[in-house]
Structure formats: C-alpha cells, structure tokens
C-alpha cells in the first residue's frame, strides 16, 4: 500500500505544486476567475501546473480514452482482481476501482436483473472477498438475454468530483485523466457523493478517497492499464484519441458507442458498445 502511494505521488503531478502555499493561492484565484466566467464548466485541466517528472512523457501530447465492448465481456473478473493487486485497493467486497455488472433478462422480464461480483451470492460462490466470480444462479433459468458490463471511473470531461473537491486534491490532467493527490486529500468524501457513477471509494486505512487512475503510472510509461492487459477477450480497450490508429480511436470509429448517464453533463470518456437501456 505504501509503495503504491509513493508511486502515485511520483506519477501524480499535482502534489508538488499544491504543497506550495503561495502558488496554490494563485491557482485558487485563477480557478475562481475561471469559475466566474463559466460556472457550469468549473473544472479545468491543470494546464498551468508543472508537468509531471516522467521521463519521455509529455502530458500535452495525449488524450486518453477507454472503451468497453460489452458484447465481448465474459464476466471472468480477472480485471477486477488485477486492478486490486496492481493498485493496492482494499481487499473486500465494498471497495473497487473497477467492477463488473451482470444483466440478465429471463423470459417475459420487463427489466433486467442486475448484480455485480459484490453480490452476497457471488461472494459465497467465490468463497472469499479477495477472489471474485459470478455464481451460476441462472443455470437452469429461462434466460432470454444476458450480458456483462465492466465499470470504472469515466474520467469525465466535466468531472463532478473535481468540481466539488474543497482542496483541489482531485484534479484533471491535460491528457484527460482525473487523479487524486493522496498526500493532500482531507478525506471529506464530498467527491464520493458527487460522482454519479459510484466510481469513488474511501480507503479507510489511508483515510483518503481513491479511484481508478487508468493506471496512470503504467500508461505514462507506454503500458496498458492492468485491467486492459489481463482481459482475455479484449472487452476493454484503451488508447490515445490523438492517434487515429490507436485501439480506442478505432473502437469509437467502428462502433456505435454511448456513454453512461449523459444527462449529468459529465461527458464521460469511457465509451460503451453493446449495452442497453437498463445500464446506467
């Protein structure tokens, strides 16, 4: 857990700036100015912030985005386990940076029956809160339609979480990632409340809020996020939208994609193919 925090500090560039009181006041005033100009679009990427000290990486040159192909996901949950291991996420059934939902319509159902790997039945099937699997409850049921939907932070273009953070501990980077500075977060959980997608969780051991970073420590070194790396069926797609040949650019081009809860105005950057009206 500790090594994870320090790595996050290295990778997450806000901390150095934010610890500098005077400069931060300046940033606060600048933010206030932006806010007054455009109160609805309060969150601004930390353009003016010092770029992170990552060799060979320029955060102005990338625009990261994520794709989920729900028609491919088989609900194996390797992504969930890989994420927990990679990022030191609390090992229980109540804290996730990413999770998978199962939607099942039995014959004649108007609405889908939904559960996730956290469902008590599924925990009983896996026998632990550290390893996850979906149980076989529908084995003999008349299933008409069923699919899995992986979920994670949407790294919204207009992130509600950043808007409400009282300290600026959570912020948006110019390459389109929403991060949390664990050394600055006060643990008020206002951002947990504000995220419409339930993407944020509280790390009780550290006293701070945590969430998916798209494995910022990996993507800035040219690697894929852990969940994308382990997915055996390529249900998860990641890449740079500035590059028209990246997997994500192709995914968005070749599919009819949608985003979750567009009515919030958050403008997510996780794009879904193959979901239906029940998914929110």
């Amino acid at each position: 857990m500790e090594s994870d925090t320090s790595e996050a500090k290295k990778a997450e560039p806000g901390s150095a700036l934010r610890r500098n009181f005077l400069r931060a006041i300046g940033a606060g005033v600048a933010c206030a100015g932006v806010w007054m100009n455009d109160p609805l679009r309060a969150a601004t990427p930390a353009e003016e912030a010092a770029p992170p000290d990552i060799p060979g990486y320029d955060w102005r040159k990338h625009k990261w985005a994520f794709g989920v192909d729900a028609t491919r996901c088989i609900g194996c949950l390797r992504c969930v386990e890989a994420c927990k291991a990679e990022n030191g996420v609390t090992q229980d059934a109540h804290h996730f940076r990413t999770w998978v939902e199962r939607y099942v319509y039995l014959e004649g159902d108007e609405h889908a029956r939904v559960d996730s790997q956290s469902d008590p039945g599924n925990i009983a099937a896996s026998g632990s809160q550290q390893a996850f699997r979906f149980d076989n409850r529908y084995a003999s049921a008349p299933v008409e339609k069923a699919f899995f939907v992986p979920k994670l932070c949407n790294h919204c273009t207009h992130p509600a979480c950043v808007q409400v953070c009282p300290t600026g501990a959570t912020y948006q980077t110019p390459d389109g990632v929403v991060l949390i500075d664990h050394s600055y977060c006060i643990g008020c959980q206002y951002c947990v409340q504000a995220c419409p997608y339930g993407a944020r969780e509280f790390n009780h051991a550290m006293g701070v809020t945590d969430k998916c970073t798209w494995c910022y420590h990996r993507i800035t070194k040219g690697l894929q996020p852990a969940c994308v790396e382990v997915c055996p069926v390529e249900a998860r797609v990641f890449g740079d939208r500035n590059d028209p040949d990246s997997p994500i650019s192709r995914f968005i081009r070749n599919n009819r994609v949608s985003v979750l809860k567009p009515q919030t105005g958050n403008a997510p950057n996780v794009f879904y193919a193959g979901i239906d009206k029940e998914v929110s």
Binding site: F21, G28, C165, T167, A169, I186, C188
Partner: peptide
C-alpha cells in the same frame, strides 16, 4: 468525520473555489 482531520486546513489554505465546501 474527515479521514485526515490533521489536513483540514488544506481547504482553508488552498480553497478550491468551485467547491461549495471550500467556502465553509
């Protein structure tokens, strides 16, 4: 309630003004 009460002053020193809570 804060997870890190010892940092409460962060919100005073560097208020993030788009947050209602920063004005508290």
């Amino acid at each position: 309630h804060l997870g890190k009460p010892q940092r409460a002053f962060n919100a005073v020193l560097t208020p993030h003004w788009t947050s209602a809570m920063s004005a508290f």
